[in-house]
Amino acid sequence: MSSGSYADVNGINLYYETHGSGRPLILLHGGLGSGEMFGPVIPALAAQHQVITVDLQGHGRTADVDRPLDLGTMAADIAALIGHLGLDRPAVVGYSLGGGVAVRTALDHPQLVSKLVAVSAHAWTEAVYADMRAQQGQLSAAAAEFMKDTPMYQDYQRVAPRPEDFPHLLDKIGAFMAEPLDLREAIAGLQVPTMFVAADADMAPPSHYVEVFGLLDGGLRDGGWMGEGRPKGGHALAILPGLTHYTIFASPLLAAVTNAFLSEG
């Protein structure tokens, strides 16, 4: 069973749902989605954790507010929610846009986070395939009419407090994706044990995630019989087979590697 609630935090009325019991895990969805998109994997995660799905600013059941979509601001929302709920250093797991928010939460508020799992979240703009960057550059309110037959549009219309805001959300997502991203230096300084996860046919190539793992002291030497050569910060990398950017969030493989990583140590 799950229960849905609102938290008035950081200037936004944030919708969240709680599933299961155990050590807390905050689960953050991708752009134009909501916490509901994790429906296929929530049972496996909730068997070991108290899973808290959050609808980010302007998504799902969380109404938009007068500010841009910004990773730092949305991370501050999550930090405020952790305090509001009195959570003791939850794991933070995020996919795509939510993965960026999860990374930013761990970077800006490391004292609040036990472990980080960033799924299909590239770390710098040019890692994304050029044709995908071109598509992202075209996203704006003008695309709303062409998206009316998509599950993203239909789900938004079903749950959003203001369904008429969908074109405005497209404008904000487009503006967000137009901003250059480069987290190389920041990721190298992560203080929270982190696993980067990607599909083997994701929006950026597997080599990008290997490079990111290298920034975390990973993939630089043999791990050793006792794991003594593994990354010093407890970091990990998972490339999941047979998946894409658009299927990984609902895959049993994602739940399996997430549970395994969070149960270590």
Score class of each variant (00 low, 15 high):
Ala143Leu: 13
Gly39Tyr: 11
Thr53Phe: 01
Tyr156Thr: 04
Gln157Lys: 12
Thr53Trp: 02
Ile248Pro: 06
Gln111Ile: 03
Gly223Pro: 13
Pro24Met: 09
Val113Cys: 06
Ala127Asp: 12
His19Glu: 00
Ala142Val: 09
Val93Leu: 13
Phe261Tyr: 12
Arg221Ser: 08
Ile187Phe: 11
Thr258Arg: 04
Ser120Asp: 14
His208Tyr: 11
Ala238Thr: 10
Arg61Trp: 10
Gly219Met: 04
Leu169Glu: 04
Ile82Val: 15
Asp64Gly: 15
Gly60Ala: 03
Leu253Thr: 00
Asp200Ser: 07
Met203Pro: 01
Ala7Met: 10
Glu211Gly: 08
Thr258Asp: 05
Leu56Asp: 10
Asp200Asn: 14
Gly189Asp: 06
Val41Asn: 05
Thr105Gly: 00
Val128Arg: 13
Thr18Pro: 02
Tyr153Arg: 07
Met226Asn: 09
Pro151Glu: 04
Tyr156Cys: 06
Ala7Gly: 12
Thr244Ser: 15
Gly224Trp: 07
Ala250Val: 14
Met195Ala: 04
Val128Gln: 11
Thr247Met: 05
Leu87Met: 10
Pro151Ile: 05
Ala75Glu: 05
Pro180Lys: 11
Pro205Lys: 01
Met74Thr: 01
Tyr15Ala: 02
Ala256Asp: 13
Ala144Leu: 08
Leu56Pro: 11
Gly11Val: 11
Arg23Ala: 15
Ala44Cys: 11
Phe261Ala: 01
Ser263Gly: 07
Gly20Ser: 09
His84Leu: 02
Ala236Glu: 13
His49Leu: 02
Gly72Ala: 14
Met74His: 08
Asp149Glu: 13
Phe213Ile: 00
Arg230Cys: 02
Asp64Thr: 14
Pro206Arg: 00
Ala91Met: 00
Ala127His: 08
Ser2Cys: 02
His109Thr: 08
Gly99Met: 07
Met1His: 10
Gly31Ser: 14
Ala204Pro: 05
Tyr153Asn: 04
Ser96Phe: 03
Gly33Cys: 15
Ala46Gly: 10
Asp77Ala: 01
Gly214Ser: 13
Ala256Cys: 00
